[in-house]
Nucleic acid binder design. Structure first.
Lengths: 143, 143
DNA sequence: TTCTATACTTACCCAAAGGTGAGCGATATG
DNA sequence: CATATCGCTCACCTTTGGGTAAGTATAGAA
């Protein structure tokens, strides 16, 4: 985000006062589509929460993991964790014992993603009061 | 993300080899709920794309904005942009002329959010190939 | 007079997200 | 012999997301 594409128009922009922020070069449209797809999958609420739980608590069994994510159902936990495994964000280890034992652990890739999300968490912690204030103001303005 | 809460257990963690990453202090559960709520709203695909379009192109009219977001419908553009206005991410200016003229501009708050998301965009650009590779490997492993 | 332009809103519809509850399989424990 | 255990899967249902198409208001152009 924040000026992903280089745009010559920026120079003659309608808002020259705002700092132009150009941290990395433009990418091709195909890459951009892939990037969007990855983000929309990864920015999913459950994915973020599973990631967080695993970063915080390390290797966890299925039901343990679930207990660290208040409100998640078995169905969604299974689905999320499978998807994350398929995306290379977690590693799933099955012990062929009875009753079954399955453990989940974050991968390096998953860890780097959780670091990348840090900025958004920090933003949200810093600014959620502003958001709430804006909502209150909007409400009274509109009604 | 990435170890949001301080946890004493980390020291005796199951994964002492992985770097413990503790960038900011623990927050109360209520704050955490709010933060999650804000993130889940803000991590929405359309919100991210509108934010990006406004950062890139500055102040835009409704239909102009829509043209910069391929695939969005009028309905979703209206909805997204209203929600962002209510959250204080964009400013909406109505000119009472006919035909109507409405302009949208990113706020400071919206701008800081787009900066926070930068990390995730960068991660996705850097790692989408790894994700694709992981998916391919998973597919062949499972089938 | 009729058509166009803009920024919507509304009604209707379909598909996906996600909850609930039941079942399963084999072993250990009472 | 019965029951609990764990990590699921499956069927069924409701809720939400989101698309499409039509309608609206009014000034100015043709």
């Amino acid at each position: 985000m924040a000026s992903k594409k280089a745009s010559a128009k920026q120079t003659a922009s309608t808002k020259p006062s705002k700092p132009v922020h150009e941290p990395y070069p433009a990418s091709s449209p195909e890459v951009e589509v892939l990037v969007q797809e990855v983000i929309s999958r990864v920015a999913d609420t459950w994915t973020m929460l599973v990631l967080e739980a695993l970063v915080e608590h390390g290797r966890l069994r299925f039901t343990e993991l679930g207990r660290h994510i208040p409100g998640i159902s078995q169905k969604m936990l299974t689905k999320t964790v499978r998807q994350m495994e398929s995306d290379g964000l977690v590693e799933r280890t099955v012990y062929p014992v009875i009753p079954p034992r399955v453990e989940y652990e974050i991968t390096n890739l998953g860890y780097t993603l959780s670091e990348a999300f840090c900025g958004v968490w920090i933003w949200a912690e810093k600014n959620h009061k502003k958001v709430e204030a804006a909502r209150a103001a909007f409400k009274s303005r509109v009604v």
